[in-house]
């Protein structure tokens, strides 16, 4: 091995090493800090402390953890399932039943991709206020269900769905909805898995809309709880760390279990 080759290899490792360290450090910091007191955290203590149990205990006194977790899980899972159902129906419909009118509508649907949420939140808030849905989880979910991204993702993936399967099913006398449910869904399960991972992440981490709609403590999700704990005048960072761990754990878990689907979904939904 010559010297210049060795040098570039070393510098590549150095570059990656620094990047990986910086990427992982906040996660490490989160774990270390969960064992420290608030004072130690804001004065940058890097060692493990002995305040972990106190922090957990304080977190559980301040926050109704099972309820908050239930709220988050309920909203994220339900909204995700509904999004996937409605959007896969549409993706399948647009691709399988092509017509000029529907293709024109599809372009309009794609156009909604560029609508920023900031321009929707005021009318949506007024709409929810008028229908008495403020402070309900239904209000959180309704505007998130129809997603042009996911419709697009399903339409693109449907192009790979073997039409012979559909023709065979038709010959067997299956109705269109039966073909969708009993043939399309099982065949496309990896597409569904990837979509699930991506949409679940988005819903679990959703912040601005819940911040507007959920106003009482018994409806709040984990992201709102972490945010309000951290924006106190003198936040107890030990407690905040327990919150960030609980908020991050489910998405980390989903990521590690379904890493392949995650990357596939991420690339696919925006391709």
């Amino acid at each position: 091995m010559n010297v210049s080759r060795f040098l570039t290899t070393t510098s590549q490792y150095a570059f990656l090493g620094v990047a990986a360290f910086l990427s992982l450090f906040p996660f490490l910091w989160m774990v270390i800090s969960s064992t420290n007191t608030s004072i130690d955290i804001i004065s940058g203590r890097m060692g493990l402390g002995d305040a972990f149990r106190t922090n957990v205990a304080n977190f559980f006194t301040l926050v109704d953890v099972p309820l908050v977790f239930w709220n988050s899980a309920k909203v994220a899972v339900l909204a995700t399932l509904l999004t996937i159902l409605v959007s896969s129906l549409a993706g399948y419909g647009f691709e399988m039943f092509k017509s000029k009118a529907r293709d024109r509508i599809y372009s309009l649907v794609l156009l909604t991709l560029m609508v920023p949420f900031a321009a929707l939140m005021i009318p949506l808030f007024m709409m929810m206020a008028k229908t008495g849905l403020i402070n309900t989880h239904v209000a959180i979910m309704l505007p998130t269900i129809a997603s042009a991204f996911i419709i697009f993702y399903f339409r693109q993936s449907t192009k790979a769905f073997p039409t012979e399967l559909r023709d065979a099913a038709k010959v067997d006398g299956l109705k269109e909805w039966q073909i969708f449910l009993y043939i399309y869904v099982p065949v496309m399960r990896s597409t569904y898995a990837a979509a699930f991972v991506i949409v679940f992440m988005v819903n679990w981490n959703n912040y601005l809309w819940p911040l507007i709609v959920l106003q009482s403590n018994d409806t709040k999700t984990i992201t709102l709880v972490v945010s309000s704990l951290a924006s106190a005048y003198y936040p107890d960072y030990g407690v905040v760390m327990i919150g960030t761990i609980l908020a991050t754990l489910p998405t980390l878990l989903v990521f590690f279990v379904m890493q392949r689907q995650f990357v596939q979904g991420m690339l696919g939904s925006v391709k």
Binding site: A20, P26, M30, Y207, T223, V240, G243, T244, A247
Partner: peptide, 16 residues
């Protein structure tokens, strides 16, 4: 490792 930050929730990492 380098991909992992985009799994973190926006609120959680801001607070960190």
């Amino acid at each position: 490792a380098i991909f992992l930050p985009c799994v973190a929730s926006l609120v959680a990492y801001s607070v960190l």
